[in-house]
Amino acid sequence: MNQTANQPLLLATAFPAGFTPGARSAVHTCLRIQPTEKVTLITDQKCLPIAASIAAELESLGCSWTGFVLEQLAPRPLQNMPQAVLEDMESSQVSIFAVEVQPNELRSRMQMTDVVNRRRMRHAHMVNITPQIMMQGMQADYLAVDALSQKVLTLAQQATYVRATTPAGTDLHVKLTPDYKWFKTSGIISPEKWGNLPGGECFTAPEEVNGVFVVDGVVGDYLCARYGILEHTPLTLWIENNRIRRIACDNKLLEEDFWNYTHTDANSDRVGEFAIGTNIGVKNVIGNILQDEKFPGIHIAFGDPYGAHTGAPWKSSTHIDVVGLHFNIWLGNADGKTQIMRDGVFLIEP
């Protein structure tokens, strides 16, 4: 066993019985881990009980696994992903990252996902997972979510543009290009694309976005925990040629924090991701981006476009999602347009 690993702590940590269905879904349905495979399980002190429920499923399955608690390896926030973790991943087929992130840790996560991408590992990204998510979003019917996601993916791949509106004032015009690939991360994780858990979205890098996005759901990264649900203090973003041109919010602290975050580097204010949330098991936003970005509707992200997957040729050191509510969505091409969502409800069947 790796000297820095901590299976005994994980196996000795108590957790609520309500975590078990979500942990079982992660191990068996989403990751489809086999008894012959090896797993790297990464957690921290805050998420220890959640990781313990996953560890119990791994033990029950009988597979080989190594567990790491980040605070026992390096000070937080992490400057880099600990070498012991990266080395262990080199001999694993599956990795699970159940951690509450801290500011300025994106670099360390990118180091981890670089290994995942290079080795084509099945990776469950459970960033900021909470007990509430374990007993809500993680208990969705992921086979049904996957079927709906596949239908959305097929329609999106045929589209050249998207129009999206909300009652709060969002009015987006999105131009798509076949040069950038669409992916579904429906909770069923494959070697082709690691995925967040809970899952449920289809995403690409857009060619061009123009219009207004009213963020009355949540913003991402560590700002999500800081500001919570924005339904009563929405953040309005004006986007031109894929860049943020202006923002406004009654909460001036949020306005300042978001502006600073999206001006960290030359591409931090550039729309890098356009996504449609497809987790029909999620009924409302809860103030946690890990689950809220899967809420049925649209979210976009500014910053890194996940170019290794989408094919977008530029990079950023940041990536922050914004989520809206009650979307109307039309997908269009030269043959016409199809409405796939009305007031937050999908109009298509899997």
Rank of each mutant, 00 (worst) to 15 (best):
L10S: 08
R243E: 01
G303T: 05
K46T: 14
T29D: 11
H263N: 15
G324L: 04
C63L: 12
D114H: 12
P350Q: 10
I239C: 04
S60T: 14
E201A: 11
T13N: 03
W259L: 04
N242A: 03
Q157W: 07
D335C: 09
Q79I: 13
V322E: 01
R120W: 11
H309Y: 15
R109P: 05
R109S: 01
F327E: 00
A55C: 11
V345H: 07
P16Y: 00
T160V: 14
W194G: 03
V101N: 10
N104V: 06
K181E: 08
W194F: 15
V127F: 10
V94Q: 01
E255N: 02
R120E: 07
T262K: 03
T278P: 04
K337H: 07
Q93W: 05
G67H: 08
W194T: 00
F258H: 06
V209H: 11
L58Q: 06
Y261A: 13
A308M: 04
K283W: 03
G287P: 11
Q291P: 01
F302T: 00
D343S: 09
L148H: 07
M134L: 13
N128M: 11
G272M: 06
K175L: 09
N284K: 15
N242T: 15
A266I: 15
G281F: 06
V69R: 14
H319L: 06
D216L: 11
Y227P: 14
N196A: 10
K315T: 15
S268T: 01
V214A: 05
L155K: 15
K46V: 14
L70M: 12
F213N: 07
E57F: 13
F15I: 09
Q136L: 12
P167V: 01
A23D: 01
